[in-house]
């Protein structure tokens, strides 16, 4: 079973994979839109914390999504 951090990263990756047929850029954008609409502030903050933690291994998709999410929401990097 996954840890909570792993599960959050997995969720982002899973959303991204379901948008993948749109092409990478659109898929990332759609995933970010989805997260903005459905994730609470704590989950978004947790995502940013994982971005900043060198010990956390994120998939390329999840990392790209979280990075764009941080820019879109104006969160401090």
């Amino acid at each position: 079973m996954m840890s909570n951090d792993e599960r959050l990263a997995y969720m982002a990756e899973q959303i991204y994979r379901n948008f993948a047929a749109q092409g990478r850029d659109m898929a990332i954008a759609s995933t970010v839109d989805h997260i903005v609409s459905f994730w609470d502030p704590r989950m978004k903050a947790q995502a940013f914390a994982m971005l900043d933690d060198p010990a956390v291994r994120l998939s390329d998709g999840a990392r790209a999504v979280f990075e764009k999410l941080r820019i879109e929401t104006g969160a401090v990097g």
Partner: peptide
Amino acid sequence: PEPGLRIPNMLDAATDGT
């Protein structure tokens, strides 16, 4: 104006202590 937690997210947040 921010979305809240879904049930599974609530349970995750609970085990995280928040």
